[in-house]
Design a protein around this nucleic acid. Structure first.
Lengths: 351, 351
DNA sequence: GTCGGGCATGTTATCGCTCCCGCGTGAGCT
DNA sequence: AGCTCACGCGGGAGCGATAACATGCCCGAC
């Protein structure tokens, strides 16, 4: 490695200034698109930059207190479809706006104090987006909010903290209304003739049933059906399989709503193992519409969630928090939609 | 609560110094664990820090030329299992070492010049890991290498640039030897009695067949079998489905090796549609062992890849590049392993 | 006794950039 | 002619940290 010879300092704004024959300030004005620069001077500076390959240091920029254009995403797991897709949405929007995106994974187990989270950001005022679909995220989010009440933090949450926050359209929170989607899915299953619907509950942001679970519950209650105990699960297909294996010994279980698609795949697997034909003797509905769900066997009926749109919206919120006069990006995302495929249908045979 | 009024400035090293009654340099020594500080002074400073909630600014640190402890991961798609898992491995190792991880997604289409990539990093000398499984990544990697020959960049690649690099154990590259794994999988399929094996080729890092494809090809050639044209595909299940639908009209196609699990799921779907029983009339083998592959129907025979280990190793390489005397982290990862499940087996019936 | 050397600490320079302020110039107004 | 003021531009002060150097101090060695 020939690294001895190269004490090469990267070209800085001063180098460009010296070469062009102007002050560093003028160079700064040019690269920031300020107006008070003569066109010819601007041209000259630009050419020098082009020739010498200069890139402004984001680090120095951030230190100097200019617009930081950096944000940190706190999330639990980059492999989970929901998180990954949201992250993708955030990154895409951020990159387009010239932001650098840092990520930091929250281990579900670790108790996160405000100090811990602060250390992640390297600076308490670093803009952040917290993907808070479950408790570790929620803890981190409230820790950040407690740290300073005006810190630029946007939460991607399961639901707003309060009715009031939802009504006031709290600009620091975005969420997908999956409660009504779950209600819709549950209603659909009941409409197919199922006596009741069982629910596999992934970790929620609260100790209680999550929004999806609530939508399921309220639909059953409204229809006067028996509400089975929800089954607590991890996010994995394996968890769905294990839960399914227990659940499906009971022939009365004919419809299962799963908190996400991975769980649903696990249940389908358990159904195969138990010899329960899907959808003839068992209906399974998932959540998320992960890319492979359309190719499961049977293809999975699921609720499509616009995570990327959600991520883009989260960034848009953060951006307008940071730079109020910034061009407003689209801050909307699609409502969840039930995608009907093969895994749910009317009962055709008894078990 | 130090500041209830929003005086907006974060506590800095100077504040701590002033409060404790020492110089800022001493505080710096304490937070960096330097030795030349009296125990009592250290204690004092530490307590002040604790009480006032101070976090060193990573930004200022980076500017000051100290160990930057920041790295950028360049990748194509955070949703793809291989990339996501590798990213997870990198992030985990980096976080443990106190590094901040930034990510930047490379759009496959865009032509990436060195300047483009440089702009992503905010500074040409920013440490980076490029996940270069396909061409966009490879382009970015070579652009970075061209920029400066000693920049701290590690590539997670499909294979080493040259035999020489592989022999010399180039510390700036990590890769999984999936060529022999593909060969093994192909051999396995031939051993089951298949006349030949077809291959669905995902985008490779070169214009040619990727390593997986080469392993497949050389095995067929060595066995004196006909080598069918590989079918070029995207990474998606949909691509696998479309390719499968065309391929499976030919009853002579009895074994398909797929460049990743998503493709394999698509092929399984196409098989179902065409009424081809798996594995009795068709064997399908995937690559990656994504979490849901074990729960596909039929469960997917696939090659397990230790992407997280690979990611950890990539970080370890980068770390030792940056701080030669840093504690050496484990830089090994598991070799790929064929996981035999239901989707591959001997021909039992003719179509 | 004096000198050299480690130790604990303070002082100053520097990193690359942005902000604030000030200076000259020429156009436009009175 | 005098005054203002926008324009184009430069000078210097930070931002929060680290690095290099400087300073006392105490202690053992010659």
């Amino acid at each position: 490695m020939p690294d001895m010879a190269s004490s090469e300092r990267v070209t800085s704004i001063w180098d460009i200034a010296r070469i062009t024959g102007v002050s560093h300030q003028t160079v700064s004005r040019v690269i920031n698109g300020k107006t008070n620069v003569k066109a010819s001077t601007r041209e000259l500076v630009l050419r020098t930059i082009e020739e010498h390959g200069y890139t402004p240091s984001t680090v120095a920029r951030a230190l100097a207190g200019g617009t930081a254009r950096t944000l940190t995403v706190l999330t639990v797991n980059t492999e989970l479809y929901g998180c990954a897709a949201t992250l993708r949405g955030i990154e895409e929007a951020a990159r387009l706006a010239g932001f650098t995106v840092a990520i930091s994974v929250l281990e579900p187990g670790a108790a996160r104090t405000a100090r811990d989270v602060e250390a992640r950001l390297g600076n308490p005022r670093t803009p952040a987006i917290v993907i808070a679909f479950e408790s570790a995220g929620v803890r981190a989010l409230s820790a950040l909010n407690a740290l300073s009440d005006d810190s630029p933090v946007v939460g991607v949450v399961e639901r707003p903290d309060s009715q009031a926050a939802a009504m006031a359209a709290d600009p620091t929170r975005v969420w997908i209304d999956d409660r009504s989607a779950a209600a819709h899915a549950t209603g659909q299953l009941l409409g197919l003739g199922h006596e009741t619907v069982h629910y596999l509950a992934p970790p929620s942001s609260t100790a209680q049933l999550g929004q999806r679970g609530l939508g399921w519950q309220e639909t059953l209650v409204a229809a006067g059906r028996r509400v089975p105990d929800p089954v607590d699960c991890e996010w994995t297909p394996r968890a769905g399989y294990l839960a399914g294996r227990e659940l499906l010994v009971d022939p009365a279980v004919t419809a299962v709503l799963c908190g996400n698609d991975d769980l649903a795949l696990g249940v389908l697997h358990a159904a195969r193992e138990r010899g329960r034909a899907v959808p003839d003797t068992l209906s399974v509905v998932g959540f998320d519409d992960a890319p492979h769900s359309a190719y499961a066997a049977p293809t999975l009926t699921t609720v499509r969630m616009d995570f990327e749109g959600l991520g883009r919206a989260a960034f848009a919120r953060l951006h307008s928090l940071l730079e109020p006069e910034a061009p407003a990006l689209p801050t909307l995302w699609e409502e969840p939609e039930l995608i009907v495929r093969e895994s749910a249908g009317p009962l055709r045979r008894t078990v």
